[in-house]
Simulated assay, not measured.
Amino acid sequence: MTPPPFRRILVAVDASPLSQAATDLACRLSKRWQAPVDAVFVEDINIVRLVAHPFVHTISLAAARRQSADDTLIGKALELQAIAARRALDAALATTGGHGTFTVRRGRVEAEVLEAGQGCDLLCLGWSGRPDSRARRSRLGSVARAVSRSAAASVLLLQNPVTGPLFLWWDGFPPALEMAAALAAREGATVQVVVPAHDRIDGTRRGVEAVSALQELGVTAALHAVGRPAALPGTLPADALLLLSAEAEIVLDDLPCSALLVR
């Protein structure tokens, strides 16, 4: 019997809509694989330290004056965000019938997420980042980038709620293909294969081989596109989930959709 791809899932949470979407998806995967979900909310130590700086002030619009930053206000704001994130987790678990834990930590966000994720098979977090006005999408945030580079486990970066098709970026990394097959089998989805290649004939050959391998694993698959790596992200819809090797030669900022970096 093939072991489940995820035995334990970590989701990094805050009070943002994208965090809630990541929580919902983590709980869906938890239900599929009977894997517990560990949610972690990190109080950013950099914000806490910044408030303590003597030259940092807040501006009150109500009082129309500047005043020293109040660490109690920041603490209360972080507490309220943690409460909102906890409620989102509880609601998602109640919907899926899963189980999990919620932890609050304080420190550097990426370091705390990586430490909390030790022993997990999958780390889920929001794409975050600032909007790119030229591409009309957000650049990958610094925390997401650091975690995706340093995590020992696979990392799911959620840019948009995943409601669309499943894609496989096929560059010859078998674990990504096996993960795509496992997810497609549980979801009843078709795996759409995209092949980065400078030689279209060779890329098509490799794509057909990947489709055949997926079909041998019992899932429906089709060749979606073959082309230069820089051009392929433009063929992907925003609501899709793209599976690819964590070492794939691709600029994540170019992706319009969520990505699962497989290790």
Rank of each mutant, 00 (worst) to 15 (best):
C120H: 10
A213Q: 09
H224M: 04
R8N: 02
L243E: 12
A225D: 11
P5I: 02
A88E: 08
A94C: 03
A69H: 11
R136M: 09
A181Y: 01
W33E: 13
G75S: 12
R65V: 10
W170E: 15
P54F: 05
G126C: 10
V195D: 02
A144K: 08
R130H: 12
L80F: 02
H99C: 03
R106C: 05
F41I: 07
L89Q: 09
T220H: 03
S142E: 15
A84H: 04
I250S: 07
S148R: 09
L236A: 13
D239Q: 13
T95I: 01
A240I: 14
E112I: 01
D254L: 14
T204N: 05
R66I: 10
R130W: 00
A240C: 12
L73V: 12
A39N: 01
D254K: 11
V37E: 00
R206V: 02
P229M: 09
Q215E: 15
I9L: 05
W169G: 10
V211D: 03
L61T: 06
A238C: 07
E43M: 01
A246H: 12
S142M: 13
D199V: 08
A146P: 04
Q159C: 01
D71G: 06
E247W: 00
V262S: 09
G126K: 13
P54Q: 10
G207F: 07
R137S: 05
L61D: 06
P229D: 09
P3C: 06
R228S: 10
V113F: 00
R106I: 06
G129I: 05
Q34G: 08
V251Q: 06
I45P: 04
L80C: 04
W170D: 15
L168S: 03
R205F: 05
A230I: 11
G107A: 12
L156M: 14
E247P: 00
A259Q: 15
A135S: 07
V262A: 09
R149N: 08
A35S: 07
V40D: 00
R139V: 11
L93D: 06
K76T: 03
A77P: 01
L78C: 06
R32C: 00
P174M: 08
S142K: 12
I47H: 09
A92L: 05
Q118V: 10
L158P: 10
L114C: 07
R105Q: 05
V208R: 12
A222D: 10
P5V: 04
D38G: 00
E112F: 00
R49G: 12
V191N: 01
S30P: 02
I45R: 13
L78Y: 01
A84C: 02
L125I: 06
P174K: 11
A52T: 13
P161N: 12
G97S: 08
E178P: 00
A146K: 14
V13D: 08
A180W: 04
F167M: 11
L18S: 10
P4R: 15
R186M: 07
T163F: 04
A153P: 03
M179V: 05
R149V: 03
L223W: 03
A12S: 14
G75T: 15
G172N: 11
V191L: 02
A12W: 09
D14V: 10
Q67G: 08
E115G: 07
V51P: 10
T204V: 01
L25M: 03
Q67W: 04
I45M: 11
T204P: 00
L252H: 04
